[in-house]
Nucleic acid binder design. Structure first.
Length: 889
DNA sequence: GCGGACTGCTTACCT
DNA sequence: ACAGGTAAGCAGTCCGCG
C-alpha cells in the first residue's frame, strides 16, 4: 500500500472539474481550473502518526487529514468516513427557509436540520436551523449566490419586517469546522483502524498529567478538567520531522530587480536542496560561457549540472513529492510561486507540479510547506518567543541573530556569478534556512507543533497566521465542544457596546495602564516586584469574557468594574476566562518551572521550554485581542475592563506598600520598584496580594542600585553581578549613532563597577571624563575616515510616497538614495548623517566628513546623557566646560 | 518677515 | 494587522510683534 515516490506520477489522476477545495473568505475565489489530485491515501490501518494538516478535497468532497507517520517518515492522506458536511446556522425555521427563492434549489444545498444551541450573548437556549450543503463554496466564498448571503438578502422580501434573518458560523473554514465538530487535535497522534481515525493515548504521560492536576488542586472542578485537557495536548512527545530546505536563484537581466514570479520570465539557474537527512545537493543550470570559478565547495555537497532547465526543475519537484516537510524563506511569495509559473510556462502539466498556488500562500500537494519568513514575521513570535533578537525579517538578519550565520556577501549580481560562486551563495541561503528550523533541538518546529495543538489548526496555517487567529480558533473549538453558538462580531458589538473611558493617547479607544512617576535619583538596594501574567490573571480571577462582561442579568449589575460603568457576571464562567486562566496556570505553575528543572532530561526540558514559550506568546496577546477590531470575538468592554482592573490592582498594591512603610520609587503596568524593603515587608505584601487580590506578586528583579531621571519608561538598573539593565534610554536605541553609543556603553560599564554610594561618587567623576572626552573628539572632528559612526539608522515605515503629512529626515535621505537608483521598500533601514547644508541630512554612503554638522551631534549627546545626568545632579553643559553665560550665547 | 509656542507626525521603546 | 503609554526629534502652523 505504501506507494513509493516514483509511482506518484502514475497514480496522479487529472480531474477536470471546478476546483472546490477549501473555500475561505481570505483566499477569495478559486478560479475554475484543472486540478490534479496526487494521493497517498492511507491504508485501512496505519500505525501511530501525527495529524499535521487538514484540507477540503473538492473532488472527493470530503475533509482530508494529512498524517505524518514517523517510522516511514511519510505523509498519508485520510479522507473523512463519517459523512460530515459543511453547514451554517440560521434563526429561521425550515418552513421559512423553504420560501426563500434559490435556497433549497441551490445546487450546493443538501438539507435542513433543526437543533438547539446555547446563545451566550443572551444567556438562553436557541432553536436554530442547520443549513447543510454539499460543498463549502455553496455556503460562502463566491462573490454572489452563496447560501450565507441568500438568506439575509432574500428573506426580507418575503417576510418584511417580521423577523430578522440571521446567519451564524458561515465564515468558518470547512476543515476547521470539521476539526471542531469531530473534536480533533491537530499536532497529536492518531492511528487508522479499519478506515477510522482514532486518537492514540501516550501512556507514560498519564502520570505526569495526574501530577499537573495535583499542582493546581485549589481550582474549581471545571478549571481542573480544562487544565487536564490542555495538559494532555501539551505533554505528548514530538516527532523528528524529516525535512528539506529549498532555495532557488533566478537569472535576472536587471541586477537590481528581482524577477516577477507572476511572469517567471527568466531561467531558474540554481537550486539547493538541503535535507535534515543529510541530503545536500546543489543543482546548477549550464549556461554558455559561464566560468566554473575557483571557490571551494563543502566536501559533503553534491553538485549537479543540468543542460535543461526543465530537468533541473523536475529534480526539485521530485524532492517536493518526497519530503513530508519543506522549509523555505519566503517560498510563498517567491520560490514556489516562481517554480510553479516557470513550470507552466515550459509546458508542464499541473499534475506534474507538486505546488498548489493560492492568492497569498503556496502549499504542497504532498507534504507541508513551512515558510519561515511568514513565521518570523509574526510580531508576537519576534517579540515574545525571540525577545526582539532580530528586527528586520530578512534571512541575513534572522540568520545572524538566531543561528549566527549571515548570507554570503556578493560582489556581483546573481546572474554574473561563476558556477561555484553561485552554488556557494545559494547553498548558504539553504543552510541558514535549514538551521533556522533545526537550531536548539528543532525549537522552531516544536514551537509550531505546540501552537498547532493549542490553536487546533493545521501546521501550515499556524505558522503563517497571527496570534489572534490562534486564539480565535481555540475559542471557537470550545464553543462547538459546549454546543454554544459562535456569535457574529457585529452582534457582540451591538449587545456589549463600546468603551467608556478616555485614553491618554489621542485616537486610542480606552484608557490603558498606569505608569507611576519615578522618584529621580540614584537608589541603592532596589527590589522590583511584579504580577505574574497580570492581564491573563485578571481575566481568570475576574471572570472576563464577552459573555460575562455586561451580561444580561440584572442581579449581576452590582458587580462593578472599578473606574468603568461595566459589570461582570456572577453566575456563569466565561470561556475566555476559563481557557486563558488554565493556560496561565499551566505556564506559571508547571511549564515555566519545569523548563528550568535540571533534574529533567535535556530533551524534556527543551520541550517544556518550547511549551512555556508558546504559552507566553499566546498569553501576552490574550488581552489585546479583545480590543482589536479584527478579532472575531472583538469586545471593547472586555479589554477596557481588563485594563481598568489592572490599574486598580497596581494602585491598591502601591497604597498597601506605602502603608507597610515601603518607599515605592517607580511602577509600570504590573510592576513596582521598592527602595530597600525588608524581607518582612516583601512577605507581607505578597501575602496581602494573594489574599486580597488573588494575584501572585513576586520579586522579579533585584538591583544593587537603580538610576532614575524624572522620565517614565526610562531607567538603569544595576544587577548584583554588575550587569546593567538599560530600559528606554536613548543611548541604547537602535537608531542612535555608534559614536554616541560608544560613550554610553563606557558609562554603562563604569556604572556596573559601582558597589556603594561612596563608589558612585568616584564613578561620577569618571563619567564626566568620558563625556568630556567624547565631546572634544567630536569638536576636533575625530570620528574616523568616514562619517560611518555618526550615521542615524531609521526604518522606513512605508514607501517614500506614503509620507504625505510631513517628510521626516530619514525619508529625505531615502529620496536622495532613490534618485541615485536605489530601490526602496517599507521596512528598509535608512542610514543618514546630519550635515550643515540644506536639507540638513545626507545618506551616509554619500556624506563626507567635512560637511558634518558637529553642533547637531553635540545636541544629541546632550539629550542622550541628560537622561542619566539628571539623576546624578549633573549638567551636560557644565561638564563640557560651558559656563552658564556661554550657554546663553 | 521672523521667531517662539504649539500641534501633529513619526519612530523606537516599555509593560 | 493583540493593546495602550511615554520620550524624542522634527515638520508644519499659528500668532504676536508697532
Amino acid at each position: 500500500m505504501k506507494k513509493h515516490l516514483d509511482d506518484f506520477f502514475t497514480v496522479a489522476e487529472t480531474v477536470k472539474e471546478k476546483q472546490t477545495e477549501s473555500s475561505s473568505p481570505e483566499e477569495g475565489l478559486s478560479k475554475e481550473k484543472e486540478t490534479v489530485v496526487v494521493t497517498t491515501v492511507a491504508p485501512r490501518n496505519l500505525s501511530a502518526s501525527y495529524f499535521v494538516s487538514a484540507t477540503y478535497d473538492g473532488n472527493k468532497r470530503r475533509a482530508c487529514i494529512k498524517l505524518y507517520e514517523p517510522e516511514s517518515r511519510k505523509i498519508y492522506f485520510w479522507y473523512d468516513t463519517t459523512g460530515h458536511k459543511p453547514y451554517c446556522l440560521t434563526n429561521l425555521a425550515p418552513s421559512e427557509l423553504e420560501k426563500i427563492a434559490g435556497l433549497t434549489s441551490h445546487t450546493g444545498f443538501d438539507h435542513f436540520e433543526t437543533l438547539k444551541k446555547y446563545n451566550s450573548l443572551l444567556d438562553r437556549q436557541a432553536t436554530v436551523t442547520k443549513v447543510v450543503a454539499k460543498d463549502p463554496l455553496a455556503i460562502g466564498g463566491r462573490p454572489r449566490g452563496c447560501i450565507r448571503d441568500i438568506i439575509p438578502e432574500e428573506y426580507p422580501k418575503i417576510a418584511g419586517e417580521q423577523q430578522q434573518a440571521k446567519v451564524w458560523e458561515a465564515a468558518i473554514r470547512y476543515y476547521q469546522s470539521y476539526i471542531y465538530d469531530r473534536n480533533l487535535a491537530p499536532g497529536m497522534i492518531y492511528k487508522i483502524e479499519n478506515d477510522k481515525l482514532i486518537q492514540v493515548r501516550h501512556e507514560p504521560s498519564e502520570k505526569t498529567i495526574k501530577q499537573i492536576c495535583r499542582l493546581v488542586e485549589d481550582e474549581t472542578e471545571e478549571s481542573l478538567r480544562n487544565i487536564e485537557l490542555w495538559a494532555r495536548l501539551l505533554e505528548y512527545p514530538v516527532p523528528n520531522f524529516r525535512r528539506v530546505a529549498l532555495d532557488i536563484e533566478v537569472f535576472s537581466p536587471i541586477p537590481t530587480r528581482v524577477p516577477d514570479p507572476q511572469e517567471a520570465a527568466y531561467r531558474v539557474i540554481c537550486a539547493t536542496l538541503l535535507g535534515s537527512d543529510g541530503k545536500n545537493k546543489v543543482l546548477l543550470l549550464r549556461r554558455e560561457g559561464l566560468e566554473k570559478g575557483s571557490e571551494r565547495l563543502p566536501p559533503d555537497m553534491t553538485v549537479e549540472y543540468y543542460d535543461s532547465e526543465q530537468k533541473l526543475i523536475l529534480e526539485i519537484f521530485k524532492a517536493l513529492w518526497d519530503y513530508p516537510f519543506v522549509i523555505t524563506f519566503n517560498g510563498d511569495d517567491f520560490d514556489f510561486r516562481y517554480l510553479y509559473q516557470r513550470a507552466l510556462n515550459m509546458g508542464l502539466k499541473k499534475s506534474q507540479i507538486p505546488i498548489e498556488v493560492r492568492r497569498r500562500v503556496c502549499l504542497l500537494k504532498y507534504g507541508i510547506h513551512i515558510d519561515l519568513y511568514k513565521f518570523f514575521y509574526n510580531r508576537s513570535i519576534q517579540i515574545y518567543a525571540f525577545s526582539q533578537k532580530y528586527r528586520r525579517v530578512t534571512l541575513d538578519e534572522v540568520g545572524k541573530a538566531l543561528v549566527g550565520r549571515a548570507k554570503l556577501e556578493r560582489a556581483k549580481p546573481i546572474s554574473e556569478l561563476t558556477y561555484t560562486e553561485l552554488a556557494r551563495y545559494c547553498a548558504r541561503d539553504a543552510e541558514i534556512t535549514l538551521e533556522l528550523c533545526t537550531f536548539d533541538d528543532d525549537l522552531v518546529m516544536k514551537l509550531i507543533l505546540a501552537l498547532t495543538r493549542i490553536a487546533r489548526m493545521p501546521m501550515e496555517d499556524v505558522s503563517r497566521q497571527g496570534v489572534s487567529r490562534w486564539i480565535r480558533n481555540f475559542l471557537h473549538h470550545e464553543h462547538r465542544r459546549r454546543n454554544m453558538l459562535i456569535p457574529n462580531a457585529e452582534d457582540i458589538l451591538a449587545v456589549k457596546g463600546t468603551t467608556a473611558t478616555k485614553a491618554m493617547i489621542k485616537g486610542k479607544k480606552y484608557k490603558g495602564a498606569i505608569v507611576v512617576k519615578p522618584v529621580p535619583g540614584v537608589h541603592f538596594n532596589v527590589k522590583v516586584m511584579d504580577f505574574a501574567s497580570l492581564y491573563p490573571s485578571i481575566i481568570k480571577v475576574h471572570n472576563l469574557g464577552y459573555q460575562s462582561v455586561r451580561c444580561p442579568h440584572s442581579e449581576c449589575k452590582d458587580n462593578k468594574v472599578p473606574g468603568t460603568p461595566h459589570w461582570v457576571c456572577k453566575k456563569d464562567r466565561a470561556i475566555e476566562s476559563l481557557l486563558i486562566g488554565s493556560l496561565r496556570d499551566l505556564r506559571v505553575k508547571w511549564y515555566k518551572p519545569k523548563s528550568r528543572d535540571k533534574t529533567l532530561s535535556h530533551e524534556l526540558r527543551s520541550w517544556y521550554y518550547v511549551i512555556q514559550s508558546a504559552l507566553k506568546v499566546i498569553l501576552n496577546a490574550s488581552y489585546g485581542v479583545f480590543g482589536a477590531e479584527k478579532f472575531a470575538l472583538y469586545c471593547p468592554p472586555v479589554a477596557e475592563a481588563t485594563a481598568a482592573i489592572g490599574r486598580h490592582v497596581i494602585t491598591q498594591t502601591i497604597n498597601k506598600a506605602r502603608e507597610l512603610g515601603i518607599e515605592v520609587i517607580y511602577g509600570d503596568t504590573d510592576s513596582i520598584f521598592l527602595r530597600g524593603p525588608s524581607e518582612e515587608q516583601i512577605n507581607a505584601l505578597m501575602k496581602w496580594s494573594e489574599h486580597e487580590l488573588e494575584m501572585e506578586l513576586d520579586v522579579d528583579k533585584i538591583y544593587r542600585y537603580s538610576v532614575f531621571s524624572s522620565r517614565k519608561k526610562n531607567y538603569l538598573g544595576i544587577f548584583p553581578d554588575g550587569s546593567v539593565d538599560v530600559k528606554g534610554m536613548t543611548g541604547k536605541k537602535r537608531h542612535i549613532p555608534v559614536f554616541i553609543k560608544k560613550a554610553f556603553n563606557q558609562m554603562e560599564e563604569r556604572l556596573g563597577r559601582v558597589k556603594s554610594p561612596t563608589e558612585f561618587e568616584e564613578a561620577k567623576k569618571d563619567i564626566q571624563q568620558i563625556i568630556r572626552e567624547r565631546y572634544s573628539r567630536l569638536k576636533r572632528r575625530e570620528w574616523g575616515e568616514s562619517p560611518e559612526e555618526l550615521a542615524f539608522h531609521v526604518v522606513l515605515g512605508k514607501v517614500p510616497e506614503g509620507y504625505t503629512k510631513t517628510i521626516p529626515q530619514h525619508v529625505k535621505a531615502a529620496l536622495v538614495l532613490r534618485k541615485k537608483g536605489y530601490e526602496l521598500k517599507a521596512g528598509d533601514l535608512i542610514s543618514f548623517v546630519k550635515v550643515t547644508k540644506e536639507p540638513h541630512v545626507k545618506p551616509v554612503q554619500l556624506a563626507s566628513n567635512s560637511e558634518v554638522d558637529v553642533d547637531k551631534y553635540v545636541g544629541h549627546m546632550h539629550s542622550t546623557f541628560a537622561q542619566v545626568l539628571d539623576a546624578m545632579g549633573l549638567d551636560f553643559d557644565e561638564i563640557i566646560g560651558l559656563t552658564k553665560l556661554e550657554r546663553f550665547m
